[in-house]
Computed example of a mutant assay.
Amino acid sequence: MCLMLLANTAAAQDVADAPGAKLRLLDKLTGKVTDLDLSSGQSETVGRLTVQMDACRYDPENPAAEAFAHLTILDAMLPDPVFNGWMTASSPALSALDNARYDVWVLRCDVPDVVLPDVGEPPEDTPGEGQPAEEDTTDDGNG
């Protein structure tokens, strides 16, 4: 019985390395959302943060189900990394960046030879958007 449990656990932990990942960064002060497409080892600077994607892993049995990315995140105002570890796409709060201004989370790994659903662009704020539509009124007083 124990061997079956160990075999199932080992099989459930099979992961494959991806050449890159798609991340999303939110500047909570300005409300600006930025999507980052990074290859392994590549970094990009947005505002004060420099985000480096060290590795991205996924379940080869179901590549769209989960992504695990190892990130190193630096803040230009601090000498040490503000984050250095693994983030999970489905549970970003499990291992989150603790920063008053920025949030960063993993959207997916770039999986070769697999077409994954595209992650939609962040919505643009436009004046009046999100307001209920004005209904036609009648003269009978019933709205």
Rank of each mutant, 00 (worst) to 15 (best):
A89V: 01
Q52L: 12
T34H: 09
L29H: 11
D80A: 08
L94Y: 11
P112I: 06
V119I: 15
W105F: 04
M53H: 13
K28T: 01
I73Y: 05
D59K: 07
V114C: 05
C109E: 02
A55I: 02
R48G: 01
A7S: 06
A11C: 01
V15C: 01
N99M: 06
A7H: 03
L71G: 02
D113F: 06
K22P: 00
L5V: 11
F68V: 04
P60F: 11
N62V: 04
Q13W: 09
P63N: 04
P117E: 14
T126W: 15
H70Y: 13
Q13M: 10
L71R: 06
G31I: 10
D54T: 09
G128Q: 12
G20S: 06
P132G: 04
L25M: 13
S90D: 10
P19D: 13
L116N: 09
A76Q: 12
F83V: 06
Y58F: 14
D103G: 01
N8C: 06
D80E: 12
S95L: 09
V82H: 05
A64I: 02
D103F: 02
R48V: 07
F83E: 07
A64P: 02
A7M: 03
L78S: 11
N99K: 10
D80Y: 07
S39K: 15
L5F: 07
A16K: 13
V106S: 01
A10I: 02
A96S: 15
D136K: 11
D98H: 14
L97V: 08
Q42C: 02
Y58M: 04
D125K: 15
V119K: 10
M77T: 14
G120A: 15
T50S: 13
R24Y: 04
E66P: 00
V82T: 12
D113W: 07
A21T: 05
G31Y: 11
N8V: 01
D54R: 13
A55E: 12
C56I: 04
L97E: 07
Q52D: 07
V46I: 14
P123Y: 13
P117I: 13
V119N: 10
P19G: 14
L25D: 00
M1C: 04
K28A: 09
M87N: 03
M53Y: 02
A18Y: 01
D136L: 10
G47M: 06
T30M: 10
Y102R: 08
A67E: 00
V46C: 03
Q131Y: 13
L3N: 05
G128Y: 13
D37M: 10
Q42L: 07
P122K: 11
P117V: 13
E66V: 07
P60W: 10
D37T: 09
L97A: 07
P92S: 03
P81C: 08
M87D: 07
P127S: 15
G128R: 14
Q52P: 00
D37Y: 10
L94C: 01
K28Y: 06
T34M: 05
L74H: 11
V111H: 08
P19C: 09
P81K: 04
A96P: 04
E134I: 10
A64V: 09
G85C: 04
K28M: 11
D17P: 02
C56Y: 03
L74V: 09
D59R: 11
D113R: 12
P127T: 15
G20N: 10
L49T: 03
A96Q: 13
N84D: 15
R108P: 01
E66C: 03
D98I: 12
